[in-house]
Design a protein around this nucleic acid. Sequence first.
DNA 1: GTAGGGTTAG
Length: 749
Amino acid sequence: MSSLIPLKTSKREMALPSTSVPMSPFPLHLLPSSDPPYKLLQNHPSLSLLSKCRTVQTLKQVHSHIIKTGLHHTQFALSKLIEFCALSPFGDLPYALLLFESIDEPNQVIWNTMIRGFSLSSSPGLALEFYVKMIWSGIVPNSYTFPFVLKSCAKTASTQEGRQIHGQVLKLGLDSDAFVHTSLINMYAQNGELANARLVFDKSHLRDAVSYTALITGYVLIGYMENARKLFDEIPMRDVVSWNAMIAGYAQTGQREEALAFFEEMIRANVVPNESTLVSVLSACAQSGSLELGKWVRSWINEHGLGSNLHLANALIDMYSKCGYLDTAFDLFEGLQQRDVISWNVMIGGYTHRSYYKEALGLFRRMLRSNIEPSDVTFLSVLPACATLGALDLGKWIHAYIDKNFQNSTNVSLWTSLIDMYAKCGSIEAAQQVFNGMEHKNLASWNAMISGLAMHGVADKALELFSQMTGGGLKPDDITFVGVLSACTHAGLLGLGRQYFSSMVQDYAISPDLQHYGCMVNLLGRAGLFDEAEALIQNMEMKPDGAIWGSLLGACRVHKRVELGESVAQRLFELEPENPGPYVLLSNIYAGAGRWDDVARIRTLLNNKGMRKVPGCSSIEVDSVVHEFLVSDKVHPRCKEIYDMLNEVDTLLDKAGFVPDTSEVIRDMDEEWKEGALSHHSEKLAIAFGLISTKPGTTIRIVKNLRVCGNCHSATKLISKIFNREIIARDRNRFHHFKDGFCSCKDYW
DNA sequence: GTAGGGTTAG
């Protein structure tokens, strides 16, 4: 790199006078090529037209006008034209470049303008390239050049180049310029080199609110809010941006209360907030659910005539949706005069955040129909919705879109979301492919892949990945161990589970949380080691939750431990009085023991409490449309065909010698359940629909909200063989891959 | 003789 950025200090040759003499009503061309008097040019009508341009079309018209009047022979006019093209939101950087290349010997201002344009563009690295070219062409950079070049170094994380440019600043003695000085601090701060930023700051007497704030922002970036706070207290003259940096810093580091307290103090100090302030404050409100303050900010915005500000409208939509007021958020959204991609993103993200996944996908489809380009952030909200709903087709479409338009994205979360989506939609191979193709993986990427393999019951691969990851020097976190332990749980690997659990505590100093204990209780309970499971629960640092007792209760069902089941269920009744699950599970335990009187007693209990079993619901995506089925559902448009297929399935199952296992049915629960029992379970309806609506041999993927029942599990194994179909089912806990009469869970789930 | 630094929602 050292040879790439030369610094010539020799003076360039004078430009030759122009020889062409075009016709013009404004006889500027008669003047020599060194520009005519500044005043004459500054107020030239063609140039004042520029500021009125709103499209590239009119821009080109103004350009031709400039040519007609002969103004294009002056560097001043060209520089104004380039300035507009390179910097205005209505400009066109490639056009600026074209203009630039048509100039024989661009002057310093023109070079600086091009560098600035690039530094603000989506490829700020080009600013640095232009800077090098400028020096090679013999132009000496000045105090205007460096802020732009340093900005580009900050944006492209070019630390090496930044240091070199710092050297050149010193050589030219420009470090005493306030703008250059702050830009240096900012460059180091943005590149995480706080020591260097501090050095530049400390060595100089140039300390204004701007340079303080640049340094503060550096500390904010690495989450050192205390250092930021210290500096803030030192600033002799704080301005609104200094306050904003602190408020944004607290909001971004999750210290919402601090952010809001700073805002209130700012108001008390009579500093008038601006758009940035309010955006950060609304973000803090959104995070902490402070609807009241959010409403106050909204009225402040309206009182100050900022109601039509799009940034603020977007922040308000976000605030309302995160506070749970999705309807209000949507009314804001619908009422907007204009929406940008962020408006769509916050609204879609709001739906996902509040678990309204179907609404999120619906709005995403509307966004595409409205010809709005989605961004990577859009997909970070849409992919989890696909994952939850099992919308694999849409997920695949998004993957293709990302491959086409975000191929070079350095957003690791984007690819990680794809892994998660594929894993949760049942396509663990595709998840693995995305994972393998990732050049840069972070902890979350490994976690997503390990948990994905775990939920598919591919324990050996999950554990292999874990050793690969730790072998590569990456430190696992609590989430990694949830994946690892659940891999052991789903495969019934008790010994290994124990080993990983103690390794987590001893080798990685991670204290187990409820999820880790849940895995261990599950493993121990399923192995019939009830004493050990209970001892573990007794020794937990925290109060066991419903999931822990629930998993023990599940084990009681498997091992037919009626008495223990009764006492565990009792705890659950107290812990989660509104949850019908434990009642259903206990009645299953009674049913398994043939204690029908007790089954009836539970039924009465449930009825008296007005509780109902959560209805089983299965969905299947066919041609990008998600179809949902409840138990005994008769509302699907192809209902008749589905039930015909169901009859055929039952006949074939019967022929194959299938004996329904009724031990888990809650007998006589009520008429509705009786009718729906077994044959009309929602997963069977979804499978039947899959059989009639997809080509023979196509894999059928279904998603169920509850655990698959034993009877359906046995039936589905046989269906996969009879119809020669691979059936991939996601239940509440894990995946089952049914093929040739077998299931990947090896009947352990 | 044109211009320039620090804060902003998902």
